[in-house]
Amino acid sequence: MSEIMFFAFRNAKLRMGLIIVLFFLLLGIFGPMISKYQDPLDYVGQGYQPPSKEHWLGTTTFGQDVFTQLVYGIRSSFFVGLVGGGIATIIGLVIGFLAGYEGGWLDELLMMLTNILLVIPTLALLIIVAAYLPYRGVFIQSIIIGLTAWPWTARAVRSQTLSLRTREFVNLARISGRSHMKIILYEVLPNMMSYVFMVFILQFGGAILAAVGLDFIGLGPSRGISIGLMLQNAVLWNAIQLGMWWWAIPPGLVITLVVGALYFMNVGLDEVFNPRLREM
């Protein structure tokens, strides 16, 4: 394990990705503290203001501070990504591992469930669920997203597990008396770490985008801001056409950088986990 850490820190791609992600994570956590304004939705100045000392990233059409919105948005987007993407990844992993490794009737049952969920239009489901909820916060939104986004992860993990399960080292672990749980955790999972991480990245991005979708149809957080909401508002109020780049570009750039950095980490992790790639 210490060896993996050693190679992890030596890997430039991983380091770079990690630095970018950490930068935005810290911005999301501490940004609201350094911002001059406490409420991202407050009308704190004149509208249409380009970046200035007063408003670091200018203001919206209505005079809200874009920087404040951005840092709060980063915070909630990270939250949705982590919780929603996390839930989807974990459910997908558990179901994929069980179905792929145990096989038989359990496999059939779990895959039936997965396929049913895959064909139900997620958006319709989300609308129904959200409509029944009296109160909607970012947390509830994340959970709803997480609970509906896992099926394709489960299928992908299952097929990976199926191929790993036939490898001799799994047989060797079995005749070493290892339990199924331990084999999945210690033999199969480590070989899929970079894959799991990639799945998480996609789920992370997917959750953020799903949140944008929900925000758009009015099922977003009852109050608050997110990167998706910012983008949506910027588009809605013709920010680009009006030359308000400071409203439209930063949220888009943040999403691009964060997801791009996660991809970089993924490639780096592949090199760390695969000793063959490591030596190059």
């Binding site: 005749i175 070493s176 033999e187 480590p190 070989n191 063959r276």
Partner: peptide, 27 residues
């Protein structure tokens, strides 16, 4: 048992010592 493919008998991301450690842990 011992299997046909020596390279697939070891988990490629761990050192070979691990097959011995596994025996100690389990037995």
């Amino acid at each position: 048992g011992i299997f046909q493919d020596p390279f697939s008998s070891y988990n490629p991301i761990f050192k070979v010592d691990r097959v011995f450690d596994m025996v100690r842990e389990e037995f």
